[in-house]
Each structure stands twice: as C-alpha cells, then as structure tokens.
Amino acid sequence: MAFSSSVFSPQTRGTSLLSYSTTTSSFIPTATTTTRANATTQKSFYQQPLRQTRRNNNYGINEVKPKRSSSSSSFGKVIVKAISKRYENVEVLSKEHLAVTLAYDVSQLSDKFSQERGAFTVVFSAGSSINYLRKLVEAPYIGSIDWSKWHVFWVEEPVVPNDHLESNYKFAYNRFISKVPIPASNIHAMDDTLQADAAAEAYEATLKSLIENKVIASSTNGLPRFDLTVLDMGPDGHVGALFSDHPLLHETNKWVSFLRDSPISPPQRITLTLPVINASSNIAMVVSGAGKANAVYSALEEKEEDDDGGDGEKEEYSKLPAEMVVPYEGELKWYLENGAASKLFKKK
C-alpha cells in the first residue's frame, strides 16, 4: 500500500516542493467528502505560486520562479531553487496542514491493512511526530477507525522506567494512546524492567512471536514488515537511536539492538536496526522546526561524488542516518513543516 497521493490535489492536501501556492486551504476530511474553508495568505517567499519550472542541466536541479505577488513586487524577482532528489515524495506544509494530511494518510492505511490482514501495525518514534498524530483523536477519525486492529510498537526507547519523563512510551501514551481505544494487549512497549541488552533481546523475541501469529507481516527477506513506521529526525540527522559514525548504524544481524554511549541523554537506548526500519511497508518521516532545516537539506539535496584525489577511486560522502532510510519494498514519504524545509530553497 502506497501513501495516497491522488485523494487531494497539491492545492488542497498541501504543497510539494514543486507545487507551492500563496494560499493554504483549511479542510476537514469526512467519511465521504472534503470541505474547504476560507484560504489564508502565507508570507513565506517559497510558498508563492509557481510561474515557471525549468531544468538546469549544468547543476541537475530545478529552478523555480514564483509569480509576482500583488502584496510584494519583489517576489517577481526571486529565483527559488528546489534541491531534492526525492521531491515527488516530499510535502511541505504548515503545522496545522501537516497534522491534517498525516491523519488522513494514516487513516487510509489503517483501513486498508485492517481489512486485508485483520491488523494494522504501527511503529512510533519520539518527539514531534507523535504530536502531529493529534487529528486522529478527533472526529471523524476517532469514531471511524477500527482501533481494535491497531498494534503499536516503538522504534527506540531510552533505558528508563515507563513513567520516566524521558520515556518515549510515556510521551506517546499521554499524547495519543490514552485518547484512543486501542486494546492494552496491543500496546507492545519495550520492557522497562530489564537492562539494555536483555530488553533488546526480549523485544526481538516479541517481534518474532507476533510474526508467527500473523500479527506482523514478514518481508521477502524474513524481516518484520510493519505496515507503517512513523519516524522523527533529530537536528543531527539521526533516526531512532541510530547516529552518524556509530557502529550500530551498520548492524545487519540483529532486529533490535542497544547502545550505552548515545550522544544524547539518556545514554543507554534500545532501538530497531536500520534493516528492520527499511523493511516497513510505509515510512512517514515527520520533521518539524527550523533547527532541523540543515539536516533536511543534507538528507534531500542532490549529492555529487567526492573527488577521487588522484587515486582513481571516488569516495562516498558520509550519509546521515535519515538518508539511509530507504524502504526495500515499501514507500517513504517526507512530511516537512515549513521551518524544517526552509533550507531547501535559496534566493538568488
């Protein structure tokens, strides 16, 4: 199941990197219709309507010139460069529209997998990605989604008690899980009574058991195939507890592993490994805040191979963990809040 891209046009669902508009429409999807309220003008220069898109063959990027705005004639002279190798799967939205769009897409996936498999497996991350699920606890979704089919997992968890302030379980429970009728037996938290290594082994055993019971689907290479993994990305480009230049980023044998030297506190963490993340059917990369704009730019910009230095072999650049999220058989979609996407566009 791919993320829905045809239910709303870019003008109604949000804006992709190559389809900006001066207006964003407030709308509330219902079971049968989508209504649009009064449009509100956005001030960001990269949200002006596009007049022209042309290919720059010298640099391999798209140069986009916005229309002249009646409120600011200077916009007609701005060249906006949308630099992205995967712009087809990127949406840039206001905070409100990101929440609305994400809720609609998740509800569609929930309906599909609940009907096809009798279960909908969702992996939660930490941070703002949970906050952007808030529309699911409101009408029409709170009453239309079959919550009994949901099975919830976590991509990573600090080694702290579940009632600790740093617990990802606690954050997700307070902001989302406690507000929807998911059966308690379907909430698969990591064991907070065990040490990091034992907790990682126990969580991997849980995943294997749920595959045997047909709750979690299995990928063609035998990995757990979650229906949806919702990821957040840190300002340094990390996802889950997978950090740049850390050996755990290249773990390929284990499904769940741990580290005791995390660069962010708390230092001990349990995490799904990259192969398991990439085995997901659908991955939603939800990124918010201007503080993450540099990492978003680095993850999505077109890369040029490093010079060979005269030895005839070109070196690969060091990828951010977020760049290494590339589903084997599924689909990745980026949901970017305006601030997080701000470095993708340059004035010239």
Rank of each mutant, 00 (worst) to 15 (best):
Y297T: 00
E63K: 03
W255K: 01
A99N: 08
K319I: 07
T206Y: 12
V90R: 04
Q48A: 14
I130S: 02
Y87I: 07
T252I: 12
D146K: 15
G289M: 02
P183Y: 04
T34M: 13
F45V: 10
V160I: 07
N338F: 14
W255L: 07
E305S: 11
F153R: 01
F75R: 15
K303C: 06
I79S: 13
A103R: 06
G237E: 00
V92P: 00
L50F: 13
K347E: 00
S281N: 12
E204T: 03
Y141K: 07
T101G: 13
V215M: 02
A139G: 08
E331W: 04
V287E: 04
K170I: 01
I61M: 06
A139I: 10
G234N: 04
A241S: 10
E323I: 02
V7I: 14
N56Y: 03
S94P: 02
I177V: 09
Y132V: 10
V276T: 07
S73P: 00
D232V: 15
Q268H: 09
S244L: 15
S167Y: 04
K208T: 09
P266D: 02
I277Q: 01
A196N: 03
N131R: 14
E337P: 02
L242R: 01
H246A: 08
F45T: 11
R134H: 14
F120W: 08
F226D: 02
E166Q: 11
T206N: 11
A126F: 06
S44L: 15
K208C: 05
R225W: 07
L18M: 10
P263A: 00
A139K: 15
D311S: 11
I270L: 10
T193V: 07
A299F: 00
L272Q: 02
Q52K: 15
A39P: 09
Q48M: 13
T193S: 12
L223G: 03
E88L: 14
A340C: 07
H188G: 05
L50V: 15
D308V: 02
K43S: 15
S209A: 13
Q108F: 05
I216S: 05
I187S: 04
F243A: 01
Y87S: 11
Y141D: 05
P263L: 01
I283S: 03
S342L: 00
I28W: 12
L207C: 08
V123T: 08
N282V: 04
S167Q: 04
P158Q: 01
E305V: 12
L228Q: 01
Y87K: 11
L336R: 07
R51K: 09
G312S: 01
H246E: 11
S71W: 14
R260C: 11
E251Y: 06
S6T: 11
A284Y: 05
K77F: 09
T229Y: 02
M190N: 07
T35I: 11
Q108R: 11
H250S: 15
E315F: 08
P266F: 03
L259W: 07
D192W: 06
K95D: 15
G240L: 03
S107E: 07
A290G: 12
L210Q: 12
E116V: 14
S219N: 05
E337A: 06
N213P: 08
A299R: 01
N57K: 15
Y173H: 12
